[in-house]
Design a protein around this nucleic acid. Structure first.
Length: 553
RNA sequence: GGCCCGUUGGUGAAGUGGUUCAACACACAUGCCUUUCACGCAUGCAUUCAUGGGUUCAAAUCCCGUACGGGUCACCA
């Protein structure tokens, strides 16, 4: 029996003519140096930080070179499918403004000329390639049962030999055509394995864009390429898809590094040029002094939705990812504050080859700086969008007081050295609630008095301020002069310096007085500039809050 | 167990044989500035690059061993 007959026996209704695929999916007509990348998740749930990181880099590299970035769904493991996860993946990418040029848009829809982009829909294609390999004598059926495989493994372990289906352990490789025919006709179930021509003793050099040159043993494992359900394994789908989809750069997690010799051999056996590989180390997390992979189950920050919920601007997360991705980015950005991510060119060589620790603290710092440079109207937009999903009360308030809220967010903003109060949008309410009447009035108030805490003294200060010193039309200078006069009247130094020089002459200094006015107005001892706050709150609110406090105490 | 990768301060890290090589950033600490806070400014924070040996006039940088961490060895991706 020839290989051709064997192939027909095993895959009777499959066409092994590959030329039609080559014609249908031609070399991409892109400019010189354009990079084609992809994000290829299994639809088993939502996007993990590590995957987002990978797709972020892939998208970036494609952008930098005017290439293509596409989304392929790897659903060849039918047991692990989670309903609607394609939708979730698409949404997560969308939330981070990672656009795809081609690929899945939802559970059913896709765009692009190199599809289908859902592997389960590519069954025919894979089978054609499998049949072709059988005809070429480069693949063969395997009838081993799970038990048999397990037994060889045990034996190999016992004899301290390498584990796997290779060499003399590859029983079915030695089956004669007649034996195969007999088994098939008896109805014995089988899968298809790749007939490796590698030699473990031989070492080959492989290159990884991030890890550099590696020297590894050749692959000699006869891995499964077609499973009993007729779908391919990852390795084989990778070969077929990334060849046909004309991927130039495979960017993936470094758990794949050890199968790189296999993948290179697979491409070689078909006479295809393998893509370039970039294996990314996992993002780590430290807990109780132990470093481990960031885990979606244990770490809330591993889920991409966490950032959406916290209200960290997408752009800030990207800035952080870029500092992790390219170690020279941070300095570049520091020198080019007016530029954006798009102006920076990603470089594989500048990527750390070992896994970095995910530093939420640093992310918040980047976010804080980013928000501080935003315009008040942008902060307003961001906060409204966040509140819309996560805080309906705040959302309503913001919606009905747009200009007012914007002026609150504008305090000490849009200047050379803006305040850095907000690390994320979800923090804004707790920092500005006292500026909103609706929130202030309903709040159970806890006034944080410090140096001056005697209620009579406070009442007197408030009364004097309202009667003699407060004038809503004061400029900041006038306002401050009045504060000084108030301090003086009550025996407090007009200047902190004066007080420090002669502490015995005074009950305190102007800071103590302004603190009282600040606290009764806001309940807090730490706020942005008091003049700005008063200016925005307005006369009525100020008098109301002062009078109410006097009444209640 | 086999194979592969990694190890620079609390963190992210720069640096691949010698001209300040231990940058820069985050965090932390102290001080200054200031009506509070924040901002800003100043200063401090690894005599040492996991560890033991070797090569060299010279090593974080090259070589070998050890330890520790990670990955992989499925009809999962």
């Amino acid at each position: 029996m020839t290989n051709k007959e064997l192939a027909d026996l095993l895959l009777p209704n499959v066409d092994s003519d590959l030329s039609k695929y080559e014609e249908k999916y031609p070399e991409r007509n892109l400019k010189e140096g354009a990079i084609v990348t992809r994000f290829a998740p299994s639809p088993t749930g939502f996007v993990h930080m590590g995957s987002l990181f990978q797709s972020f880099i892939s998208r970036k590299v494609a952008n930098d070179t005017e290439g293509i970035f596409f989304l392929r769904v790897e659903d060849t493991d039918q047991k692990r499918l989670v309903e609607n996860s394609v939708k979730g993946i698409v949404l997560d990418l969308k939330n981070f403004n990672i656009e795809i040029d081609e690929g899945m848009l939802s559970e059913e829809e896709e765009k692009g000329a190199y599809g289908p982009y859902m592997q389960s829909l590519r069954k025919d294609i894979y089978q054609s390639y499998v049949k072709y390999l059988i005809e070429q004598g480069k693949a063969y059926p395997c009838f081993c049962t799970a038990e048999e495989i397990e037994d060889t493994r045990l034996l190999q372990e016992k004899k301290k030999q390498r584990i796997g289906y290779y060499g003399r352990f590859a029983k079915c490789r030695k089956l004669t055509p007649d034996q195969i025919k007999e088994k098939v006709e008896k109805g014995e179930p089988y899968i298809i394995r790749f007939k490796s021509y590698g030699d473990f003793e031989r070492r080959i050099k492989v290159n990884d864009l991030i890890k550099g040159n590696l020297e590894v043993p050749e692959n000699d494992l006869d891995i499964v390429i077609l499973k009993s359900d007729g779908l391919p394994t990852y390795h084989f789908a990778h070969l077929v898809d990334d060849h046909l989809m004309r991927t130039t750069h495979v960017i993936r997690g470094d758990e794949w590094l050890s199968s790189l010799p296999l993948h290179i051999q697979l491409f070689e056996s078909m006479g295809y040029k393998p893509p370039k590989y970039a294996h990314i180390s996992p993002i780590m997390k430290e807990e109780n002094g132990v470093k481990r992979k960031l885990s979606k189950r244990k770490d809330p920050e591993a889920a991409v939705s966490y950032y959406h919920e916290k209200g960290i601007p997408v752009e800030a997360v990207k800035l952080y990812l870029m500092t992790l991705a390219n170690t020279n980015f941070e300095q570049w950005y520091d020198c080019n504050k007016d530029k954006s991510l798009e102006d920076f060119t990603f470089d594989f060589k500048k990527m750390s080859s070992s896994g970095g620790l995910f530093d939420v603290e640093k992310l918040f710092n980047i976010s804080r700086n980013y928000i501080s440079r935003l315009k008040a109207s942008e902060v307003y937009e961001g906060t409204v969008n966040w509140a819309k999903d996560y805080d309906s009360e705040f959302y309503e308030i913001l919606k009905s007081h747009k200009d007012y809220a914007t002026s609150v967010f504008n305090i000490e903003r849009e200047q050379k050295k803006p305040r850095k109060d907000y690390g994320c949008y979800s923090e804004i309410k707790e920092q500005t609630w006292y500026m909103f009447k609706e929130l202030f009035d309903k709040e159970e108030k806890d006034y944080a008095f410090q140096t001056i805490s005697d209620k009579e003294e406070i009442k007197n200060i408030l009364t004097a301020y309202m009667e003699k010193y407060y004038n809503e039309n004061d400029t900041k200078e006038e306002w401050f002069d009045h504060m000084k006069d108030l301090a003086h009247e009550f025996g407090y130094a007009k200047e902190v310096k004066e007080y420090k020089e002669n502490p015995d002459n005074y009950k305190g200094h102007i800071g103590d007085i302004s603190l009282v006015l600040r606290i009764v107005l806001t309940t807090k001892s730490m706020t942005p500039d008091l003049y700005d706050i008063m200016h925005i709150l307005g006369k009525d609110t100020i008098l109301e809050r002062y009078q109410n406090w006097i009444k209640e105490n």
